[in-house]
Design a binder for these strands. Structure first.
Length: 155
DNA sequence: GCCAACGTTGGC
DNA sequence: GCCAACGTTGGC
């Protein structure tokens, strides 16, 4: 069991949107960065994923998701009408992958970025490093538990 | 909307 | 394989 953090812009797709999908969950398409893709390829069904809301006020962790399907080809790459289209990727030779996730919990207390930065225990998180842009990053067991506690989730 | 930081591209 | 130019991310 490993833990991760994935960013999403809530105006485009929020944790509430994922909750509304219920047990079907949703595919996490549109990742177009090799390092982020490679992290997704390491994910296993059941892994915990922090849902980080970016490009909003305030940015922060809204809750937790769970991986429900391991990485598979992202078909939006060969959909010319998609904003994520990449003609280098084809059904025969997919370049980009996605995983499926389901909603697990929305934190009683939204954990905003200022709070994350104020926690010495979280100083090593990739998301907090200067200039970080990666949309999928690994999170340690301790960091995951710490953020859940900040979010007010009962054990 | 600004802009710093970063990844990617492509000319050489 | 270098590196300048470019596009994107994302906090502010």
């Amino acid at each position: 069991m490993h833990y991760w953090l994935m960013k999403t812009e809530p105006d485009v797709f929020s944790l509430d949107d994922l909750k509304a999908r219920g047990a079907r969950g949703e595919c996490w398409n549109g990742v177009r960065n090799y390092q982020a893709r490679n992290y997704m390829r390491q994910m296993q069904v059941g892994d915990g994923v922090l849902c980080y809301h970016s490009n909003c006020a305030p940015p922060g962790v809204a809750g937790v998701m769970r991986v429900s399907r391991v990485a598979y080809a992202d078909p939006t790459a060969w959909d010319a009408a998609s904003p994520y289209a990449d003609p280098r990727s084809t059904p025969a030779k997919p370049l980009w992958d996605m995983v499926d996730v389901v909603w697990v919990e929305t934190f009683p207390r939204y954990v905003n970025l200022d709070t994350l930065r104020g926690e010495a225990a979280l100083a090593g998180m990739q998301i907090l490093q200067r200039g970080n842009r990666l949309s999928v990053t690994p999170v340690s067991d301790a960091q995951f538990r710490h953020i859940r506690a900040l979010g007010g989730t009962r054990a």
